[in-house]
Design a protein around this nucleic acid. Structure first.
Lengths: 189, 189
DNA sequence: TTTTACTTTTGACCATAATAAAAAACAAAA
DNA sequence: TTTTGTTTTTTATTATGGTCAAAAGTAAAA
């Protein structure tokens, strides 16, 4: 079925072909066009998405009506709104395709069942969670210790190819600055 | 042994008395005096700490020599530097007692062994990780959508008793502002 | 109780980044 | 190819929060 995901799982746990197939039987492949929403504001999030190609963004719309991007997801990343998913509360975050994107959808209703049938999958999700959390902590550190100019420099250096894929106003939103100020910073550099 | 922790675990999984005892046999109770460090800068973090009483802070020292607090830990919280712990890299974060603090130390070297002997403990740590990540995401949202004044108001409202326990300059550090500006904000309100 | 250390406040001045309103550049359709 | 919509740049003005230096207040120790 999907090789990316099988590779991904084998990186973290010992698992048989049969178990991988069983896990994959719970997943549904879906394709979203640019600007289509996988999760809408106000809706309770009921799935996790493994991105096989394309790019998603997780964002909300602030009081002034501007998008604030929390983060992006690209190939071989799991993306969801964990707060809404696990606490079963309506999401104020939106998940949207930045470009045409293919995902494997895992419905949350199956997850406990999967954990009991294939305990290694619970281990995989524990590790995914650990890594996701570490990324989030690093982001908080950057937000504190770097100026916008330094954050931009850092982000472009770390993600040179990705920067090409997204419009500049999305990069500005991710960095927490206005597109106008981003434009000014680029001119400066 | 420690009742807080047993209660904590039972909130998340079905577990027998014997399994809890076995888990607790891996833990060592330690007490730290105010300003004592559980993890020093440059050291690889090798333990997770469950706080039974007192308060810890996780922070780093920035280029200008100022403390930047990433977060606090209080009673019934697990605290560690996951990046250093899991990736086995030297920590630039420091874990320090804000007041006299008692913890249960869990050495990372035992963790895989514990997971295989008591799989429920892996589930507990998965859930801890999920909740910790959600808290981190919420913090990032606050940092983006609230002004310092609003963050202060929010934090004091959500943690009225805790605010009394820590010096103001630590609150300033946590909010990412200078103590001078915090003082000004308090006068304004 | 007096010294010493730590913490908070005050005020003057400066830097970073936001807002607003246009203009320009670019891309996509018709 | 012309229109329309989207994205980026420009400029002027304003607001938020930082820096520095000093004073005042508080707590702890000798």
């Amino acid at each position: 079925m999907n090789d990316n995901l099988a590779q991904y799982i084998k990186r973290y746990v010992d698992i048989s072909k049969e178990e991988i197939s069983l896990f994959q039987s719970y997943l549904v492949s879906k394709t979203f066009k640019k600007k289509e929403q996988l999760l809408q504001s106000g809706e309770i999030c009921r799935s996790r998405y493994f991105i096989t190609s394309g790019c998603l963004r997780l964002y909300y719309i602030d009081q002034k009506g501007n998008d604030q991007i929390i983060h992006f997801g690209i190939e071989n990343w799991w993306l969801t709104n964990y707060d809404s998913l696990l606490n079963k509360i309506p999401s104020h975050l939106i998940i949207e395709a930045v470009e045409q994107t293919q995902v494997l959808e895992l419905k949350e209703e199956f997850v406990q069942d999967i954990y009991s049938k294939i305990p290694q999958i619970e281990s995989v999700f524990r590790v995914v969670m650990e890594r996701t959390y570490i990324a989030s902590q690093r982001r908080i550190e950057y937000m504190f210790s770097l100026s916008s100019e330094e954050m931009l420099k850092e982000f472009v250096e770390q993600n040179p190819e990705f920067v090409q894929r997204i419009p500049q106003y999305m990069l500005a939103s991710y960095l927490g600055i206005t597109p106008e100020y981003l434009s000014l910073l680029r001119k400066k550099a």
